[in-house]
Nucleic acid binder design. Structure first.
Length: 660
RNA sequence: CGGAGUGUAGCUCAGCUUGGCUAGAGCGCUGCGUUCGGGACGCAGAGGUCGCAGGUUCAAAUCCUGUCACUCCGACCA
């Protein structure tokens, strides 16, 4: 740090306005905090605006930011908390490499699964660069370590973690630091000999995460999550509820249920009678009406149709057509070094059509639908896409907007599928498209007009939960509590991975019986930059950031209001020095600026505690102090100031520690 | 990847429609002075390849073509 000074010294000595020996970096006049009054053009999220205005970060490129000193101080504090709690939970820190061989990713099949998200170095074919990737996550590398060094059950369980910069070819970076191409992540990987040990390790991480986010001052909740392409059977996400998030969380009002909408499910009425969804068709109270065609010219959208038919979206069946693509069975994944860019899907990949039925007031959850499709066709890698207009017209015989379920299976080819949402099975005399342009039908009845179960001729029929939950759905716990939807930032994620990676990379250890067995794994991630952004989203006002003490770049700021008044300056500097000596992270605003200017800066930057030393209050024998959060001014004699503030800092630190 | 938009000083933007003289303002920055408890003021300054490349023209920030970057919506997203 001093080195910078030394190299500058010869030139600076004569005329530098601040000679080296007088520098104290924690004097605001000499620190580096480029604040700005202007709201940056491109920032919409509060955290993004404030991080730029408070001089925490600077954008380098889309989704790439550098951390300026103030931002870096906070990031480092977050890092320290994460490290402390991981160590406390028995995890062991290591540092893996960012560059790694493409080969590993081909072994686990994730070259394809991650697609463009996996960043490659490029370079001519055969060059080492074309065989090297920038790590977006480190399962492959840590499994490689495990298969090399973990040979015995005696070494298990073990949890290895790192805090590392990750790279992802994010297609659309957004919201400042919330979604970027380069970011700092804590990723941990646990290895277990059996399922019970995994459950234990998972719970340990879950608890550690609660402590971490609690200590960082985040109002978080843990929700059930979809485990995504990474696979695995159980997973929770740690969410901070804020406007800026890009995830949506379903929470029941009484708090007995919380899940990411990717997987959230609602209470199904059919359960009440103990009915199986497929059978409820026969038990309807209303008499089944015959199908009746109604002319509905131009009414392709649900609302339009309702108007014409005088019905409600909840009484309609929405018929959506998808295509299902099953990739060719993985040809030899190994040794394809000569052709690393092998096309993900050959043109010959078999494509079948899938008809999905949901109620008119519901939307399809494509993650659930994909799961259903995979179950039906038995291919774990099958993908689904909305069908194009031609496919739809071919299947329904009508223009887009007039598809209906009745008789649709008669038009099926081998391999086509029908997936019916549970809630559709409960409908009686519903309305739907007529499979005839400009016509709809009423009196559609599940079971009579379309099958609810597979038979010999149509083996691909499935009733499942394939819809998004909506506001007002009831908690699936059966408590009757309504579900609310909230946007949230995902700050952490814990998975039970199982043997997905140890299988793919053939990573084994020897059991007590001397037989090789695959590691059972868990993996656990935390986005450190997101913690910073989420903390700001959750803690700010019109004037700026309100840092939680635990991650504030400085815990206290001493503002000298009259730097030209020797006495006032002396008192202020004295308090600053005392605080620093007491181990408080303190910044000294010694700048020769007007009072309002400095107050605004202090508010913007968000330091939790503020001491103001000015001629005016000094004349009354006091200095002022206040919390950033409530701005209420208190006074006390200068001699007691440092001691009091240090006490407040200590108390806040203890509160944070008490969470753990 | 699809749709929309924007690139002019460190930051926020005007100028472009209808080509024309030395390319402007505010904030910030430098100097001097006044001011000094909630983002002061005066005077004097520094700072710009008008994203880049090509074209049209006597003449291009302005018109045309291409290209790059960034932002927003969507698709995508351990």
């Amino acid at each position: 740090m001093r080195r910078v000074q030394v190299t500058r010294a010869p030139r600076a000595q004569a005329e530098s306005p601040r000679p080296a020996h007088e520098r104290d970096a924690m004097h605001w006049s000499q620190f580096f905090i480029p604040t700005s009054k202007e709201t940056p053009k491109d920032a919409t999220a509060a955290s993004h605006v404030l991080m730029l205005r408070a001089g925490l970060i600077r954008q380098v490129a889309a989704g790439v930011y550098c951390y300026l000193p103030l931002g870096y101080r906070t990031l480092r504090k977050v890092e320290a908390i994460v490290r402390e709690e991981m160590n406390r939970a028995g995890a062991i820190e290591l540092h893996m490499s960012v560059l790694m061989p493409l080969d590993w990713w081909q072994q686990t099949g994730r070259t394809e699964a991650m697609g463009d998200t996996l960043l490659r170095l490029g370079g001519p074919p055969g060059d080492w660069r074309s065989q090297t990737v920038l790590g977006p996550t480190h399962e492959e590398q840590v499994v490689d370590i495990a298969r090399a060094f973990l040979g015995s059950y005696k070494q298990l369980p073990i949890n290895l973690y790192q805090i590392q910069t990750k790279f992802r070819g994010e297609a659309r970076p957004k919201s400042g630091v919330l979604r970027t191409r380069e970011f700092l992540m804590k990723d941990a990987y646990s290895f277990h000999a059996d399922k019970a040990s995994l459950d234990e390790g998972y719970q340990k991480m879950y608890d550690a995460y609660c402590r971490i986010f609690g200590r960082c001052g985040l109002p978080y909740i843990a929700v059930e999550a979809d485990s995504g392409p990474i696979g695995g059977d159980s997973s929770h996400e740690f969410m901070v509820l804020t406007d800026a998030g890009e995830d949506t969380v379903a929470i029941s009002e009484n708090g007995d249920y919380a899940a990411n909408t990717e997987r959230a499910t609602a209470f199904f009425e059919g359960h009440r009678d103990g009915e199986t969804p497929g059978r409820s068709a026969e038990s309807g109270q209303a008499a089944a009406e015959p199908l009746r065609e109604v002319h509905t010219p131009g009414a392709g959208r649900v609302e339009d149709v309702c108007k014409v038919l005088g019905t409600t979206p909840a009484q309609m069946i929405k018929t959506l057509i998808y295509t299902v693509t099953q990739p060719e069975p993985q040809a030899s994944a190994r040794g394809s070094a000569s052709e690393p860019q092998a096309p993900a899907r050959g043109p010959s990949a078999p494509v079948s059509r899938l008809v999905a039925l949901v109620r008119g007031d519901h939307d399809v959850n494509e993650i659930k639908l994909r799961k259903a499709a995979r179950q039906l066709c038995g291919s774990a890698n099958a993908s689904i896409d909305m069908a194009d207009a031609r496919t739809i017209e071919e299947l329904t015989g009508a223009k887009v907007g007039f598809a209906g379920p009745q008789g649709i299976v008669e038009r099926f080819r081998a391999g086509d599928m029908l997936v019916i949402d549970r809630d559709v099975t409960a409908l009686r005399n519903a309305a739907s498209g007529a499979n005839k342009t400009d016509y709809h039908v009423t009196g559609v009845n599940p079971g009579r007009d379309f099958p609810l179960a597979p038979d010999d001729r149509r083996p691909y029929v499935l009733v499942a939960d394939i819809r998004m939950v909506v506001e007002g759905d009831l908690s699936p716990r059966g408590s009757g509590s309504p579900i609310r939807l909230k946007t949230a930032i995902e700050v952490g994620h814990v998975f039970k991975l199982g043997t997905k990676y140890s299988d793919a990379m053939n990573a084994t250890f020897l059991t007590r019986e001397g037989k090789p067995a695959r590691f059972i794994m868990g993996c656990y991630g935390i986005g450190l930059n997101r913690i910073v952004a989420a903390a700001i989203e959750a803690n700010h006002d019109d004037n700026g950031i309100i840092w939680p003490m635990s991650i504030a770049p400085f815990e206290a700021v001493v503002i000298a209001l009259d730097p030209r008044d020797d006495h006032a300056m002396e008192v202020a500097a004295g308090i600053y020095n005392e605080l620093a000596a007491m181990g408080v992270d303190v910044l000294f605003d010694d700048r020769d600026e007007r009072a309002g200017f400095k107050f605004k800066d202090a508010d913007l930057v968000g330091i939790p505690l503020r001491v103001v030393v000015g001629k005016k209050s000094l004349a009354e024998g006091v200095v002022e102090w206040s919390h950033r959060r409530d701005q209420v001014k208190h006074t006390l004699p200068p001699a007691q100031a440092a001691g009091h503030i240090a006490g407040l800092v200590r108390a806040a630190r203890q509160t944070s520690a008490a969470l753990s």
